[in-house]
């Protein structure tokens, strides 16, 4: 069966696209799936360091697009998992060195060999975004519960739905702080999801261990004790078709909200 090409995107930068891409990819490989991660952020390469593979890069996505190397040569094998590979972004080449048709071609080739092709999309809605989504079958939109990130996510969702080959993306809400939600000082997942009106794929609590795992270049999903790691494993289960309930972040409702809910029922 041909593999699934999924783009991980957000519009706004810094909401956790690269971390999400690394963790979902690693988690799928943990289950024995054949996975390739593509860093489509030409000029601002990052997925390699998050994966701890920065010392192994010889060829990159631009070399592959320009046919300066074979696909096999551009694939960097992960240190930990046999079935996990990375195609890094170029760091010094021009942003428009890759064209959407190159991406379609590359994705179609990788589809034959891998179960999942995950594309880490650059921030923005321009050239890099168009490249990253060109070959995709599905999209995960990552956002955080703040105004600017949700606004940008809405724009991205609109663009994906307006495509010739329409994509209805799934939502990942990242960096949730239950204590703040309790106090009414942060938008809850339900608020964000109501506004964006797409399917919810996962919710990820804010977790300090993400910084430690990035420092070490070891995706959090491998850490059995981390809440964010558990949240990513839940997402992976859902991607694989399992019915996994959303993590309870136990932000309790106020006394009256509970009564109101009872009445509504």
């Amino acid at each position: 069966m041909a593999g699934n090409v999924i783009v991980i995107t957000s519009g706004k930068g810094g909401v956790g696209k690269t971390t999400t891409c690394a963790n979902i990819g690693t988690g799928l490989a943990l289950r024995g799936r054949r996975v390739v991660l593509i860093d489509a952020d030409i000029g601002l390469r990052n997925l390699d360091v998050v994966m701890g593979l920065e010392n192994r890069i010889v060829f990159d996505l631009v070399d592959l697009a320009e046919k300066k190397c074979k696909t096999r040569q551009a694939l960097i094998k992960d240190k930990r998992f046999e079935s996990l590979y990375l195609i890094p972004a170029a760091q010094t080449k021009e942003k428009d060195a890759v064209k959407p048709e190159n991406m379609v071609e590359i994705c179609n080739e990788l589809r034959q060999e891998f179960d999942y092709i995950l594309i880490d999309c650059p921030a923005g809605i321009e050239h890099g975004f168009k490249n990253a989504v060109a070959g995709a079958d599905a999209a995960f939109v990552v956002t955080t519960p703040d105004l600017s990130a949700v606004r940008d996510a809405d724009r991205i969702i609109g663009l994906l739905q307006a495509r010739e080959k329409r994509i209805d993306p799934q939502l990942i809400v990242n960096r949730i702080r239950p204590a703040m939600i309790n106090k009414g000082e942060m938008m809850a997942v339900e608020d964000v999801n109501d506004i964006l009106a797409i399917d919810l794929l996962g919710i990820i609590p804010d977790d300090e261990s993400i910084i430690i795992s990035t420092n070490r270049g070891e995706p959090l999903v491998m850490n059995p004790n981390s809440r964010a790691g558990k949240a990513y494993r839940n997402i992976i289960g859902r991607i694989e078709g399992e019915n996994i309930p959303f993590m309870s972040l136990n932000y309790e409702l106020g006394f009256f909200e509970r009564i109101k809910r009872l009445i509504k029922k």
């Binding site: 105004l147 939600i181 938008m187 608020d191 506004i195 106020g254 006394f255």
Partner: peptide
């Protein structure tokens, strides 16, 4: 009467502005 002061929740402000 029952709830903590919700009138000035920054979350509600955010949701309305975002909307």
């Amino acid at each position: 009467l029952f709830s903590k002061d919700t009138s000035n929740n920054s979350k509600d402000v955010a949701v309305e502005r975002l909307r």
